[in-house]
């Protein structure tokens, strides 16, 4: 894939499709740490079991990233080829200021290796996306996200309109 195209791709999360199986967490820990341990995953499913609500949470690779801004040693930088924020572990001092400042809680701290961890988009082939059978995670061009969402929202409008028309016809 051309680098320009990759630079523009983001992780698109559709929480309505997530069935809460957490396979993504497991895959992420296997891929990055070589062990099974969802607590070391970069992606986390937040759950409200009694409400049937499951929301995958991961790094948004913000344009104006608070983690980059707060880092006192400039260990966090923006990698333009993949459109992601990366940690330079040779520079990182492990102060966790980035963990404190991330508005999504997406900057994690690995309690075993004692280091900050975040989604690196698996260098352009996110494994969570590859193994999410229900399609709750997708890796798509940034501008496609809103188009796809617009289509889904429009579909809901259109079916609501059909229902309304049917009710009117019955009246």
């Amino acid at each position: 894939m051309a680098k320009e195209a990759m630079a523009n791709k983001v992780l698109m999360i559709d929480y309505q499709k997530c069935t809460g199986c957490r396979l993504c967490e497991l895959i992420c820990s296997v891929k990055h740490e070589g062990v099974s341990n969802p607590s070391r995953s970069r992606i986390k499913i937040m759950k409200w079991e009694s409400e049937g609500l499951y929301v995958p949470m991961s790094c948004q690779q913000c344009q104006d990233a608070p983690c980059v801004a707060v880092c006192p040693v400039k260990a966090l930088t923006r990698d333009e080829t993949l459109g992601r924020i990366v940690v330079d572990y040779d520079v990182c001092i492990g102060c966790r200021a980035c963990v404190a400042v991330c508005p999504f809680g997406a900057m994690g701290f690995d309690h075993i290796d004692r280091k900050v961890i975040k989604c690196d988009l698996c260098d352009g082939d996110p494994q969570c996306v590859r193994f999410c059978e229900v399609g709750a995670l997708e890796y798509v061009e940034a501008e496609r996200v809103s188009v796809l969402k617009q289509r889904d929202a429009a579909q809901r409008f259109s079916s609501a309109q059909k229902t309304a028309a049917a009710i009117q016809a019955e009246m």
């Binding site: 199986c21 497991l26 409400e51 229900v134």
Partner: peptide, 27 residues
């Protein structure tokens, strides 16, 4: 049925969340 759900580390959706307004958890 509100939606279909899975157990840990499994892509098959055997379970469902059932609405039940009279339960304390509603589901």
């Amino acid at each position: 049925i509100e939606r279909l759900v899975s157990c840990y580390n499994c892509p098959v959706r055997c379970g469902a969340i059932i609405r039940h307004p009279s339960l304390p958890t509603h589901r």
